[in-house]
Design a binder for these strands. Structure first.
Lengths: 234, 234
DNA sequence: TAGTGGTCTAGACCACCCG
DNA sequence: GGGTGGTCTAGACCACTAT
């Protein structure tokens, strides 16, 4: 069968390994030859084989343990990757025009549920923003957001009438920790009105919490217009 | 400031780079020093620096181009990763007990929408299965699935009374291409009944299509019980 | 065309952990 | 204890692309 070929790149090796897994030459739960042996078979080096196997492990095909060796995973715990783009970009990518509109901006005391969610001490001041994102003038996403000025004081001077808090935050808050949840919620009166959907209808919802070096910066609830699907291929 | 240290691993280097990005020492859109320069600063080698920067690029922090160099990304197109576990495992992880129950199993001609969705020629025979997954005897997920026997003939002999098609497919279909979508749907009568929720309520729904070497194998619609959230941290 | 990242080689030491 | 993967080094050639 597959005789040793010359000049196999780590990509080639990945492909061969995946093929063998898919064709059950290496069945689920079975042990692969050691890196050294594979390097020999592929007339390659252990470094190159290592990279191939390491990436396949990251992709969920293999499990690797020192001494134990490399094993084919049977559970397809394949990792789905979603990129979480800015609404603006998400809309632009479909070729539609993007429009933003501010609905409300107020400074208020953090409601209890928010304080609990973000682990704030009570009575903290927060900036509350509601806004809309349109694609080709049709409602695309209704955004309800809370920002903690204590974590990012400049926000009190920011102007959200022309562009959304998302755009602003991206410029101000470099890279942080995120928690993203997806769920289905029932459209209340406000959501229904802004998304132009019947009240009570199901709405695909994302909740996104952002931290900057341990301090909570913002919580956003993103309500998507009816028909929205989040899709990925692996 | 940070003087060159000895023995920095690629992990250390990643950490330093992330810190510098977060502290705006390397601002968004700015260019990093070349790998060679960084290797010198960190008293390391280009290989090691390369691995650190490569991984950070995969994680969405950096953009790398030959000749152009390595640039800090400003758009936080951070990639959210979700693992898509078997229901059984997902339930087990919460510590709850898992129970499976078959609702219906029929062989029928593929409905038009399914044929279109899977790019089947019309009139193809499909196995239709409906089943339930319970966590601690409470409804957790209602599964509606179609399997194409032509792609995997053994399915006609399989027994789905004791365990679900998911478990069976995992054993039979090694690794394939997946398309996963998430959306919010409205509970119809059947969904409502099985999930023990009011009809018309929003239901978090996953649709999963699996291919085996280009041939469509199965389409599954997974309806989650009220309150379900899919969450990830990055 | 020159500079950057992409990749490979050959070798080494080490950490982990199964038997 | 010994074999496996994890990582690092030092060097090389190459592919791409900005200029």
């Amino acid at each position: 069968m597959a005789a040793a070929r010359e000049n196999m790149s780590y990509r080639d090796i990945k492909q061969v390994v995946v093929d063998r897994i898919q064709n059950r030459i290496w069945a689920p739960d079975s042990l692969l030859p050691s890196e050294t042996e594979l390097a020999e078979e592929f007339s390659s080096t252990r470094t190159t084989v290592n990279r191939a196997l390491r990436e396949l492990a990251e992709e969920g095909y293999l499990e690797r343990k020192r001494k134990a060796g490399t094993r084919v995973l049977n559970a397809p715990v394949r990792k789905a990757q979603f990129s979480i783009p800015l609404v603006r970009d998400e809309i632009a990518e479909t070729g539609a025009s993007y429009r933003y509109s501010l609905v409300e901006q107020t400074l208020l005391a953090a409601p209890d549920w928010l304080a609990a969610r973000l682990e704030l001490t009570q009575g903290r001041q927060v900036l509350h923003i509601r806004c809309m994102h349109y694609a080709d003038n049709a409602p695309f996403q209704y955004e309800v957001r809370w920002i903690i000025p204590e974590s990012i004081p400049e926000v009190l001077e920011a102007d959200f009438t022309q562009s959304g808090p998302n755009d602003w935050l991206v410029q101000k808050v470099p890279f942080t920790n995120l928690e993203i949840s997806f769920m289905a919620t029932k459209a209340d009166q406000a959501i229904a009105e802004f998304l132009d959907a019947p009240a009570g209808d199901p709405v695909f919802t994302a909740e996104r919490i952002t931290w900057l070096r341990g301090a909570p910066v913002t919580l956003a609830k993103l309500y998507f217009a009816p028909g929205y699907r989040m899709t990925t291929h692996i």
